[in-house]
Design a binder for these strands. Structure first.
Lengths: 114, 114
DNA sequence: TGGGTTACTTAGAAAAAGTAAGTGGGGTCG
DNA sequence: CGACCCCACTTACTTTTTCTAAGTAACCCA
């Protein structure tokens, strides 16, 4: 769609941006992905470190990230058994975007009501 | 939470990033926001330009963006009446993040199956 | 035994998103 | 006139997603 004189006709969003926004458009994906940015984390620590998330969705989102090749899952055979998740290079490469999102939010979103 | 020697204990995500990820974590918000980036658009053109979105959710997401001060809504009293949506300065300021997301997706997401 | 840990899994409820049709205001055409 | 079109929502209902709560199996300890 091309913008004609004076009209506000709208172009379809670029496929890459549309795809990543669809990815982020599932509840908790962005939060989990961003949290993994700090390095390898155990499932239980992720659960404790993300306020409001439930086991079920945490597991589901982690599986999705792993299936997309954005994270790896490593079973640590200790007592008790623990599972560690870590971003792959591809998953970690989104950092510049996260930095820009953080910058935008710091400037334009207000702190939550206390 | 502080990472102790050898442990993978996890820090809570920064509040700004958590907030913007929660915003983007609603289906269609990111797609609608990104689409408005190209300039003022009529509701009907938005609907035609975003494959897969329905009136109901499009309206709801636009209302949310307006309520958050990220977009404005202007009624154009023509024949037929039309409504135009446009990002505010705050809403438009997210562009650097969108550019980074696009860059990441171009490099790390594969094109959808044909 | 009861309590704790772990990473899921299951069952059902609640919320969100999707689908289809409608509303009220306008218009054109046969 | 009726039938169709446009517009921006709105309504009613269905389907999907997310949430809540409890459970599982494997371990540990007092």
């Amino acid at each position: 769609m091309v913008s004609s004189a004076g009209d506000n006709v709208c172009e379809t969003l670029s496929e890459p941006l549309s795809q990543v926004m669809t990815l982020l458009g599932k509840r908790w994906t962005g939060v989990v992905w961003s949290t993994l940015m700090q390095g390898p984390v155990y499932f239980s620590d992720l659960k404790r470190g993300i306020p409001g998330i439930n086991d079920r969705i945490l597991n589901e989102r982690l599986v999705e990230l792993v299936d997309l090749g954005l994270a790896t899952r490593t079973v640590i055979d200790g007592r008790p058994i623990r599972v560690r998740y870590e971003l792959t290079g591809r998953g970690a490469a989104i950092r510049p975007a996260l930095d820009e999102l953080t910058r935008w939010a710091q400037e334009h979103l207000q702190p939550p009501a206390r």
